[in-house]
Simulated assay, not measured.
Amino acid sequence: MNYLLTLLVAILGGIVMSLIHAPLPWTLGPITAVSLCSLLLRRRFRWPLGVRNTALILLGYAMGRPFNAETGHAILTHLPIMLTATVITVAAGVLTAYLMVRHTEINFTSCLLGCVPGGLSQMVILADELPDADLTAVTIMQTLRMLSVVFCIPFLATHVLPSEAGTHGAAAAAAASPETILLFAAVAVLSALLAVRLHLPTATMLGPILGTGAFLLVTGLSAPAVPIHLINAAQICVGSYIGAHIDLRQIKEYHGMGPILAGGVLFVLLVSMGMGWLVTCVTGAGLATAFLSTAPGGLTEMGITALVVGADISTMTAYQLTRLLFIMLAFPCIAKWIVRRSRHA
């Protein structure tokens, strides 16, 4: 019954956002509606993890189907600037942490983990490993940052930056046989399962992206298009899950972080836009593609936005994955080193 109520609220939120022409209405609508209803009704909404993962498989397949040899070669040539963009974005988050610790009563460790644009789950896990980190403060800061990014970047990509629809050679949308549809469905599902076994980040989305792209390169086939109503349904499932895991009541527990965190998010966004412009100048990528590639959002949210605005999903995925892997593999060591240095300063 709880799942049904969540679905109803999510669909209503999507309809409202669609009527007011908001960006990504079928993702942001469920996020907004479910999280606000949870706050107003004082109850926790729930959404099955399995349904979200199934939706991510579908979205991952849709993102992987434009991949070809040319995009693969372009990604390899972008590696140096990918690492540069990652380091600069993380550095902007560290600077924001320094500013926050000077204007709030939250300790530096918590500010550092709360301001760096990594995944919410990764930063919370890392906070649990550091003894002086305030887990609640880190969760709130990462949640506020995620909400700001999820709402701001789709708006900019949809209404401010030029559309790139039709510029990346998407696969033909001709009607496919049932056998072809089943073949690609099997590729997407098996790729997701393999990614989960390999413990890849955002495995149920990243697996189908990589698996579908590799399968297309090997076979030379054309991948069937995904009907728009299925894309919208998948976005509702993802948005419902995110909204059900946002507890807006926690925001009331901390005072003084709002303005400085908002300023920090704005600063990181400006840095990301600057990096996007630099990527465009150096590589010739479209501005929307470059901005989504360097934006401090998650692979899921940026991937959906890229899918909607027609950006180069292969390039965007490569940039976001580079930053995600850096934050997951290298940043924990860097964060612990910075914390040790700050204690002895």
Rank of each mutant, 00 (worst) to 15 (best):
T289N: 08
L269D: 12
L299N: 01
P224Q: 02
P332C: 10
F291L: 15
T315M: 13
I251Y: 01
V268R: 02
I242H: 04
G264R: 09
T212L: 09
V238A: 08
Q320I: 09
T317R: 11
F215Y: 12
L266H: 04
A223D: 00
P296N: 04
A295R: 03
G211N: 05
R341D: 04
P224I: 01
R323Q: 12
I334D: 06
F267R: 13
I338H: 10
V238M: 09
G264D: 05
L299I: 15
V279S: 09
I228T: 12
I260Y: 00
W337H: 10
Y254V: 15
V226N: 10
V238R: 04
A288W: 01
L210K: 07
A225T: 05
M257L: 14
G303L: 00
G276D: 13
I327P: 10
M275A: 06
L299S: 03
A311C: 13
P259V: 07
G298P: 02
A290S: 15
A288M: 00
V226T: 13
V271E: 07
G243N: 09
A335R: 06
I313W: 00
H245T: 10
P332Y: 07
M316H: 01
Q320T: 06
A262W: 00
L299M: 14
L329W: 11
G213D: 10
L307K: 01
I334W: 05
A223R: 02
V265Y: 03
C237F: 10
P227C: 09
M257D: 00
C281G: 03
G213V: 14
L270A: 14
T280H: 15
T300R: 02
H229Q: 12
G220Q: 12
L321I: 12
V226Q: 05
L261V: 05
T305M: 09
P259S: 04
L217V: 10
K336H: 11
V271L: 07
I304F: 07
V279L: 14
Y254G: 13
H255D: 11
G239A: 11
I236L: 15
V308Y: 10
M257I: 10
G298H: 03
A262K: 03
L269N: 11
A223H: 00
G256Q: 10
E301W: 07
V271A: 06
L278V: 08
G213E: 08
W277A: 15
F331S: 06
E301I: 09
G211M: 02
